[in-house]
Design a protein around this nucleic acid. Structure first.
Length: 887
RNA sequence: GGGCGAAUAACUCAGUUGGUAGAGUGCAACCCUUACAAGGUUGAAGUCACAGGUUCGAGCCCUGUUUCGCCCACCA
């Protein structure tokens, strides 16, 4: 392919798809089960099969892909394990909704047929998100894709369940759990979203038996009163010291309930009298246990009132609240109502208000596991990055409650527990039994509940690698090197993987846990469908390209800070992609077929040396950035280098040589340097922008194969020798000369196309020599017609002047110079210098600074002062001259 | 109630053991100069939230205050 085929602007569509297919077909994403190489593994946070790609995924996947592609370039054997999560409740909800459109309920269908429907749905539309990940460029080893309901993973789930049961870490018990009346299942504590809302606190009088007086209780949930089995007061509460009664009448029923005394009751809140509903409140449950109270369930699994609610039976719980209040008011028992903000739990899947309710469920006794998981981080076996998340992690694990793992839904891993209907024997088995192990009866029934989705995700790092088999994959890649995820699933997922990993593998699942930020909209608001501020990543990719999008995500992913996404930013980085594209066009225009590599024998110019040394420094910055999960630093280092060093300065500075104005030898060296630096840039950028870099790579005549095989970092032996002392200083001196001339041009409003005549005076022979040697570069960069260098002498007539280091620059403006303007300009410049000089002098006249500051700092300031004084001096001379003319 | 984080240019944000503030966007001026107008050159613009303290020196360290965001908690 020749450079003619490069269009002027980069067009990502088509190119991305083509390269993705190529990489996949050639097996570039494949991990080796066994290899002598260093291994690097990441397991993907499995998106829900119901999932649609959102910004959070995009950031998460981009970061992982940067890590994986970078490590492949470093020569590691990389495994990026992909897959999806069966997402019990979420998926069941989706399929139920679809059935509802056809007028069918899951109960009508029955369990087996319903599960068939779910699998069918999964076959049809469950993999959508995988294709979206591919659009982003995710380089997962797709041949190993797993699903949490795979037979292999299901086997792992069973083994873990049975083992935990045997270790007495799983039990069944009756407790208050969170019940979602819409999903009709129990939820774990974590699956409840607490939202503060405006409620009311109702003061209700519970009369003493045979008296008009009574105890006034305060409650936000009057509908649960039918389940009250006591009223509690604090024994230390003076208001109730001389209380003669030991029971009250529960209004709207004929029940008498006892008054109990317990220090748990907060005397500050409400009236100091607490209605106790052991079946619908976790605290009341504990209180009830202590005082031996009855547990009366008054709200059923559908959120409707039970028989115990008397006339309110069958009524919805919220309807009942209203009606009961009316009834109480009619009886004169509603004493007062006051507004109150309290937090109410909602189902994290369907947002229904959850009902704390008494229920028999399966639990994991999680404290011993939690301790191991916490210790692993305390011992440094796993690092959490940024480290401040460790505190959150410890706080949660140190105060953990038992984990309710049973769900009353059908889609999921059915709990492997059977009960004999003849003798009552309970069997917990890895393989389905066909008869009772005690009495031999074949009349055995399996538990109907399924496990919490997070139970299987907790095993993900090793179940996906074939556990419980002792596979080569496990040996090669467990523990993994990094886990990349958002903090929102630190507890749900990360902590539980830590528990299960340490327990069942005897080793932590990952060395590093990198917690990235949340992606918000441009105003910092959480993206949500209801707010209508959702940006669809796929649309962004369609319009601006995956490379620009990925680079945006990386550039804004500073640790510990949310990413505010807006299209403007993506456009900015799309421009960067285009800039790279055009730099490549320029390079290819000048490469003449097979250009050789740069060698030590080459007669490298100062700009050649400079750009080679800067390229290495940039590669190091990229490496450091990625190694320390500071993707924004890596991204901005390479951005800065490509645009403002390579394009702005080097390409321009190399033009005289490339256009053969300095001889054939120079031109050839310049070509080789150009080719090498562009190649280095492509490799550095590849983890961030895989598509455009591969595209340009494929057109470069100087390279072979895929960029994915190129190797990172670069050949340091060559560049180290280039990096001799003084290159940076010399080049910045040269650039400062150019900038000074450009500055005069700008300030004096001289057309960029006008070619200027410049003379320079310097007392330093080395500087004089340097300018002469590089005059073609300086002339080209500042568009000069002529450049004359001499020792110090009389200033030429009709000139604008500037001072750089010891050198005075005179820009001849014969006939055009505006002396007023030049006077203003010089005055401004002098003012700036004087100000700086003042601050520097002040520091140097401070005794204690000279005394206590390190010598190198003091020396630096002294040099600074000398230079500034010199500059001020020269500026003054010129200013005086101009002033005389103006007079 | 406990914890975490943020406050720096008009906007969005960097700022690596403390050495005197940077970028992108936007803005202004001039330019289609042979890679790129999705571009180039130049320029204007900051009491680093506030108040103290440590230090020769603080955006950075310490204490307190204000405002905002998030997480956790059994706020009847």
């Amino acid at each position: 392919m020749s450079s003619d085929s490069l269009v002027k602007g980069y067009e990502p569509s088509g190119i991305e798809e083509r390269w993705y297919r190529y990489w996949e077909e050639k097996g570039f994403f494949d991990a080796k089960d066994k290899s002598g190489q260093k291994s690097y593994a990441i397991v993907i946070p499995p998106p829900n099969v119901t999932g649609v790609l959102h910004m959070g995924h995009a950031l998460n996947i981009t970061i992982q892909d940067i890590l994986c592609r970078y490590h492949r370039l470093c020569g590691d054997n990389v495994l990026w394990m992909p897959g999806t999560d069966h997402a019990g409740i979420a998926t069941q909800n989706v399929v139920e909704r679809n059935l509802a459109e056809k007028g069918v309920t899951r109960d009508q269908l029955g369990r087996e047929k319903f599960i068939d429907e779910v699998w069918k749905w999964r076959e049809k539309s469950g993999g959508a998100i995988i294709n979206q990940l591919k659009r982003l460029g995710a380089s997962c080893d797709w041949k190993r894709e797993r699903f949490t309901m795979d037979s292999g993973l299901s086997q792992a789930v069973r083994k873990v369940f049975v083992q935990l049961y045997k270790d007495d870490l799983i039990y069944k018990g009756q407790y208050i759990i969170n019940w979602c009346p819409r999903c009709r299942t129990a939820l774990a504590e974590l699956e409840v979203d607490h939202e503060e809302q405006d409620s009311f606190l109702y003061y209700i009088k519970y009369p003493f038996v045979g008296s008009k007086d009574g105890l006034v209780v305060a409650t936000t949930r009057p509908e649960t009163m039918f389940g009250d089995t006591a009223v509690a007061i604090n024994p230390m509460d003076d208001r109730y010291r001389g209380l003669d009664f030991d029971s009250v009448m529960l209004p709207l029923t004929n029940k008498t309930i006892p008054i109990i005394r317990d220090s748990y009751v907060d005397t500050e809140f409400g009236t100091g009298a607490l209605k106790v509903t052991p079946a619908h409140d976790p605290n009341d449950f504990t209180l009830g246990e202590k005082h031996n109270l009855d547990r009366v369930k008054v709200i059923d699994d559908d959120g409707k009132m039970t028989e115990d609610a008397g006339e309110f039976k069958g009524m919805d719980r919220f309807e009942c609240r209203k009606k009961a209040l009316v009834a109480l008011e009619n009886l004169g028992l509603l004493v007062k109502t006051e507004p109150l903000k309290n937090s109410v739990g909602h189902c994290y899947r369907c947002k229904t208000v959850v009902e704390p309710s008494l229920s028999r469920q399966w639990f994991v006794r999680v404290a011993p596991l939690a301790k191991e998981a916490a210790d692993a981080v305390r011992n440094g076996k796993t690092r959490i990055i940024p480290a401040n998340w460790s505190k959150t992690y410890f706080d949660w694990l140190d105060n953990i409650q038992d984990w309710c793992i049973s769900r009353q839904i059908w889609w999921g891993h059915r709990i492997p527990v059977w009960k004999c209907s003849e003798c009552g024997e309970v069997m917990v088995e890895e393989v389905d039994p066909d008869r009772c192990s005690a009495c031999g009866s074949s009349s055995i029934l399996q538990e109907t509940d399924v496990l919490d989705t997070w139970f299987s995700s907790a095993l993900w790092p090793f179940s996906t690698m074939g556990w419980p088999e002792e596979t080569d994959l496990l040996k090669t890649f467990y523990p993994t090197q990094a886990l990349v995820t958002g903090f929102d699933i630190l507890f749900f997922w990360v902590a539980r993987m830590m528990m299960m990993g340490t327990r069942f593998m005897g080793e932590v699942p990952f060395e590093d846990v990198y917690i990235h930020a949340l992606v918000r909209d441009e105003n910092g608001k959480k993206m949500s469908k209801s707010k209508g501020n959702v940006i669809d990543p796929i649309k962004v990719i369609d319009t601006h390209g995956a490379d620009a999008f990925r680079f945006t995500l990386a550039a804004f992913a500073a640790q510990g800070r949310d990413v505010k996404m807006s299209e403007d930013r993506v456009i900015g980085y799309r421009n960067f992609v285009n800039k790279l594209w055009n730099a490549a066009r320029f390079t290819l225009m000048h490469l003449d077929g097979d250009t050789g590599s740069v060698s030590l024998d080459d007669d490298l110019s100062i700009v050649d040396r400079w750009i080679l040394s800067r390229a290495l420094a940039t590669a190091e910055a990229v490496k450091t950035g990625i190694d320390s999960y500071k993707f924004n630093e890596a991204a901005s280092a390479v951005y800065q280098f490509v645009w403002h060093e390579f394009c702005d300065w080097y390409l321009e500075a190399s033009k005289p040589a490339l256009y053969d104005k300095e001889g054939r030898a120079r031109r050839d060296v310049s070509r080789r340097v150009l080719a090498k630096v562009l190649k280095d840039i492509l490799i550095m950028l590849h983890p961030f922008m895989p598509f455009v870099t591969e595209e340009i790579w494929s057109i470069m005549p100087t390279v072979k194969g895929s960029i994915m095989e190129a190797g990172f970092p670069f050949d340091e032996t060559l560049i180290d020798s280039v990096r001799n002392i003084g290159v940076e200083e010399k080049i910045s001196y040269a650039f400062a000369l150019v900038t000074a001339i450009r500055n005069i041009r700008g300030e004096m409003n001289i057309a960029p196309s006008a070619e200027l005549n410049v003379s320079m005076q310097t007392p330093d022979d080395n500087e004089k020599h340097f300018i002469e040697e590089n005059s073609s570069i300086i002339k080209n960069l500042s568009r000069l017609e002529s450049l004359v260098v001499s020792g110090m002498g009389e200033p030429p007539a009709s000139c604008a002047a500037a001072v750089v280091s010891g050198t005075i620059i005179y820009v001849s403006l014969k006939g055009v110079i505006d002396f007023d303007k030049e006077e203003q300009r010089l005055e401004k410049e002098l003012e700036k210098v004087t100000k700086e000089l003042l601050s520097v002098s002040k520091r140097l006249s401070n005794e204690s600074f000279l005394d206590k500051a390190p010598e190198d700092v003091v020396d630096k300031v002294r040099l600074q002062k000398d230079a500034l004084e010199d500059k001020a001096e020269k500026l003054k001379v010129n200013l005086d001259k101009i002033k005389k003319i103006n007079l």
